[in-house]
């Protein structure tokens, strides 16, 4: 079996900036990490490999040259190899274009049985890349998966949806996006790191992927950030100080007054369901 894991390099802390002109995130600022949910995706792939000997796990990422780092981490966690999709022309891609590039690479790799991705990344937080990539490859996609069983021809996945848990069977090849509950990623082992250190990652660009000019990067992206602003927070606040014992009853009274004026002090059926 061949499993591809889509992984993304994301800013580690709150040090992300945006280019105010293009609205594109500046990704080379500060420390970066492997997107936390992708850690779960890699772990799941490695677990499947343990159950299905002969499985190959390939980590795939589109990003700047520095994204090699997350490929190395995926290998330290047990992926067999990694491929970096990197070129100036990919810069500023939105989720559709990212998916286009990933789908082209997956086609080039060929004969994939299963693709795993994180449900969403902590930087863009769109959760769109997985389903879009699957759609471009014309395969079924199962999102929000917290349990996965893999057989040779199909998978059975449990999806966490708002009002319950759906169990779905899908033919392979398929793409699955995972949520945190799917597993507990162990720390990478020293041996893993040593093996990963020796890895060389091929870098594929537009020519390797037969992608045409104008279909990639900012140019090829249908969405465009036109404005960035800081949300303005302001309400007229009435203050009440409750520093001393004497002031406490008054504080409670002030709250109760608000609740009463909105008929909220009596417990009742106010859920509107």
């Amino acid at each position: 079996m061949k499993i591809i894991v889509l992984i993304k390099q994301v800013p580690g802390t709150a040090n992300t900036r945006m280019n105010p002109e293009t609205g594109v995130m500046i990704r080379d600022a500060g420390e970066t990490i492997l997107n936390p949910l992708d850690e779960h995706a890699v772990t799941e792939a490695v677990m499947i490999k343990k159950k299905h000997p002969g499985t190959e796990v390939i980590a795939l990422t589109m990003g700047p040259p520095s994204a090699q780092k997350v490929l190395r981490e995926a290998c330290a966690r047990g992926a067999d190899r990694g491929i970096l999709l990197s070129d100036k022309a990919f810069g500023g891609s939105d989720t559709l274009v990212t998916s286009r590039v990933l789908a082209a690479a997956i086609r080039k790799i060929g004969d994939t049985n299963l693709i795993l991705a994180g449900e969403k990344a902590t930087d863009g937080e769109t959760g769109q890349t997985g389903p879009m990539t699957a759609a471009l490859l014309d395969m079924p996609v199962l999102t929000f998966v917290h349990r996965l069983e893999v057989n040779d021809m199909h998978i059975i996945a449990r999806r966490m949806v708002e009002d319950g848990i759906e169990e779905i069977k899908a033919d392979l090849p398929a793409l699955v996006t995972v949520v945190k509950d799917i597993n507990n990623p162990p720390l990478p082992t020293i041996k893993g790191y040593i093996l990963a250190k020796k890895q060389k990652f091929p870098v594929w660009g537009p020519v390797d992927l037969a992608l045409e000019d104008g279909t990639m990067g900012l140019k090829g992206s249908p969405t465009r950030v036109v404005k960035i602003f800081t949300p303005k927070l302001s309400r007229q606040t009435t203050f009440y100080t409750a520093d001393t014992k004497e002031q406490l009853p008054g504080a409670a009274e002030a709250i109760i007054k608000v609740l009463k004026s909105r008929s909220l002090t009596e417990k009742g059926d106010r859920y509107g369901v």
């Binding site: 709150a14 945006m18 902590t122 930087d123 465009r224 950030v225 036109v226 960035i228 800081t230 949300p231």
Partner: peptide
């Protein structure tokens, strides 16, 4: 909301 909700971004889909 973008970047962990610290800022808001307005986005347009102009060509498609």
């Amino acid at each position: 909301p973008a970047i962990g909700g610290n800022i808001m971004a307005t986005i347009k889909t102009a060509r498609t």
